[in-house]
């Protein structure tokens, strides 16, 4: 997917900011915090995972999303968000 497509979604940007701020989170927690329903949130998360930015960890029945610590894209996105937040 091209970069403008990945970043042109408001919920996706909210998700990335949230995970950058709080670390690993589960799907329903993310949905609640960005005020979106579960299945739409889940779709956004799957997309971000497919792009190699986020990564899923499964603990029994709980799925937690966090930045993919082996992906250069994930590092770049975290840097972007951090720089953005610091220079508001």
């Amino acid at each position: 997917m091209e970069i403008e497509e990945v970043f042109s979604s408001k919920p996706r940007m909210k998700i990335l900011r949230l995970v950058a701020r709080l670390g690993a989170l589960n799907v329903s927690d993310i949905a609640r915090r960005i005020n979106l329903n579960y299945s739409t949130t889940n779709q956004h998360l799957k997309l971000l995972e497919a792009e190699g930015i986020l990564q899923q960890r499964v603990y029994g029945r709980v799925r937690m999303y966090r930045f993919n610590d082996r992906s250069p894209k994930a590092i770049a996105v975290q840097n972007l968000i951090e720089t953005w937040e610091q220079n508001k």
Binding site: G23, A24, N26, Y59, V62, M64
Partner: peptide
């Protein structure tokens, strides 16, 4: 280890497995 881990929806055994898995990770 996982500050935002949900508070509901799993058992004591699962909590223990989660703990173990987090330690492994």
């Amino acid at each position: 280890f996982r500050p935002n881990f949900p508070k509901r929806g799993y058992s004591a055994e699962e909590a223990l497995e989660t703990l173990m898995q987090s330690l492994d990770e």
